[in-house]
Design a protein around this nucleic acid. Sequence first.
DNA 1: GTCTATATTTTGATAGAC
DNA 2: GTCTATCAAAATATAGAC
Lengths: 196, 196
Amino acid sequence: MVATSIDPVGKKDPKEEIMKAALKLFTEKGYFNTSIADIRQLADVSTGTIYHYFKNKEAIADALFEEVVHSLEDSIREIRKLSNTFERLRAIVELFFELAENEPEIMRFIVAVRHQEFLGNRPALSLSSPFQKLTQIMEEGIRTGELRRMDPLVASGVFYGTVARMVLLRLEGVLEKRLEWYLLDTWTAIWRALSP
Amino acid sequence: MVATSIDPVGKKDPKEEIMKAALKLFTEKGYFNTSIADIRQLADVSTGTIYHYFKNKEAIADALFEEVVHSLEDSIREIRKLSNTFERLRAIVELFFELAENEPEIMRFIVAVRHQEFLGNRPALSLSSPFQKLTQIMEEGIRTGELRRMDPLVASGVFYGTVARMVLLRLEGVLEKRLEWYLLDTWTAIWRALSP
DNA sequence: GTCTATATTTTGATAGAC
DNA sequence: GTCTATCAAAATATAGAC
């Protein structure tokens, strides 16, 4: 996922370099505050190279979006294989907390970027497939009695809202300790909110 | 707050018209997708008039930010006068849900706009005074035993994260029914998460 | 595939009449 | 205070050599 990907010969893939630079700049300064010149400079390539690999600036953001959503989908798919709702939800919290610490740029792209403002066609991330899968987990948990009877959209709202907020507070520097430190309190609160 | 404010003679205050137009456009299309020409047109004033009342485009956004934060501060200050933590938190949920239905643009400005991207100096809204006051309410509730013992930042994260997420889902059209419809489920979940 | 140089467009902001 | 006309800068995207 936006890997450094240095090939055996030691040469870097320009496309990867461009995406890596764009991710950093988009999440740090915002899409509109980032110029092609900025990306060009950080990726250490020329303008021509950027336009060789991408149709335009929006296409870079689009490629990042696709990559991140697919990666999230894969993770959620794996997590759905766990045996019960408690384990599944717990694993999602841990995944998000871990990503926030180890891949802050990717996490910022997920929880803090307003994609609709520059990705004309894309549905909002809140309507995208990973979020729908989360709501499905909630529906199933309610059906099997593992979760309290409530509107599934409220359940996923409580869950994702809480997790995303904690992640954001950490990324913005409000939480001084690593997210692991807040995991027990956060999980206890979420589970009390959702369990029967 | 961003009032229509038609004076006795029926003439409109240009400054108000400009701010009203800017709020609508900023929340609908985003700050960077909104040009001075767009604001000019919707507010039905000339470019010159805009720059007579505001130093530049950022100053319009800044004035909106100030107005919204002050209004929120006032509401929270009133709510803090309520007799206990249960009533206070409940009142904040109801305030946000009601604002989302009746003043969707203001609510979108609060929960969905990335102010830091265009308001250079301002602290993130998550660090601003209304949010700090919320955390204080949590600290007090925990101290008096009205809330479970937990990190106050987690408490406010659970609370604000959940409320803001429900509001956003409604503003984005994911929730088809009015927020009142989800209030009981939402509040029950929040209170179970926070109460002893 | 990668580069430099340049064209084109947009738009934020100003000047100055009324 | 309000307007029109215009400037100046920025930045996206292209052309074309190597």
